[in-house]
C-alpha cells in the first residue's frame, strides 16, 4: 500500500507544472541625474542601430523602411560588422579568454524607439528578433570554438565559456526614452 501511495505521490510531484513564468528579460537604465545634461554621453553615429516603430507598427531601421522579417539579418550584420564597414560599429581589439585577442564591436548600441500607439505585440516581436540576432551570432561562435550551441550551454561549468562569448557579442539593446514619433 505504502508503495502505491509513494508512487502516486512521486507521479504527481513530477507531473504538476507550477506554471513557470517565462519571457524576455531586460535591464532598464537607471534614471538619469537631473544635474547631468542628457547630451553628455555622445555615441558616435556609426555605433547606433536605430529602430523606430510607429503607431501603425511599421519599422524604420537606420532611416529606411524595413519589414520585420528582415530586421534579424540587418541586426546581425550590424553587431558583427564582418567586413569592417566604416558605416557599421567600430571594432576594438579585446583580450578574451578561450579566444585570444579579437576585434569586438564593443561600443555598439541597438536603440528601439516606439510611439505611444505602437502595439505591444509588435514591440515584443522586434525585441525578440533582436535577441534572436544575438543568439544566432553567439551560437555560431560557440559552435566554431566549442562545438556546442551557446543556447544549449547550461549549468555553472559552462559559465566561463558563456562569459567569453558574451564579451565578444555583448547584448546592448537600449530601452530608449519615450518619444512621440509618427504623430498622433
Amino acid at each position: 500500500m505504502a508503495d502505491i501511495a509513494f508512487l502516486l505521490l512521486i507521479f504527481f510531484l513530477v507531473t504538476t507544472t507550477m506554471n513557470t513564468d517565462s519571457g524576455l528579460s531586460r535591464q532598464l537604465p537607471p534614471m538619469p541625474d537631473e544635474e547631468v545634461p542628457e547630451d553628455d554621453i555622445k555615441i558616435r553615429e556609426r555605433n547606433i542601430f536605430l529602430v523606430l516603430v510607429n503607431k501603425n507598427d511599421q519599422l524604420m531601421v537606420e532611416n529606411e523602411l524595413m519589414d520585420i522579417s528582415d530586421i534579424r539579418e540587418a541586426a546581425k550584420e550590424f553587431i558583427a560588422n564582418p567586413n569592417n564597414d566604416p558605416d557599421l560599429p567600430a571594432k576594438t581589439p579585446l583580450e578574451v579568454p578561450y579566444f585570444g585577442t579579437r576585434e569586438v564591436t564593443k561600443n555598439h548600441v541597438i536603440s528601439i524607439q516606439t510611439d505611444n500607439g505602437t502595439s505591444y505585440g509588435a514591440y515584443i516581436a522586434v525585441q525578440n528578433e533582436l535577441v534572436a540576432a544575438y543568439n544566432e551570432l553567439r551560437n555560431e561562435l560557440a559552435m566554431q570554438r566549442f562545438g556546442e550551441k551557446y543556447t544549449d550551454m547550461k549549468g555553472e561549468a559552462d559559465r566561463p565559456k558563456k562569459d567569453a562569448i558574451e564579451e565578444i557579442y555583448p547584448l546592448a539593446i537600449s530601452e530608449a526614452e519615450p518619444k512621440n514619433i509618427g504623430g498622433q
Binding site: 528579460s25 534614471m31 505611444n116
Partner: peptide, 28 residues
C-alpha cells in the same frame, strides 16, 4: 496583453526606473 498600446507600457517602465526596479521581464 498583446493588443495594449506602448504608451501605457512606457509609462510603467518609466515609473519602474524611478523606483529603481531595473530588472524586468516581458512575459511571453
Amino acid at each position: 496583453d498583446n493588443n495594449v498600446e506602448m504608451g501605457i507600457v512606457t509609462d510603467v517602465k518609466q515609473e519602474l526606473r524611478k523606483a529603481s526596479a531595473l530588472k524586468i521581464n516581458y512575459s511571453s
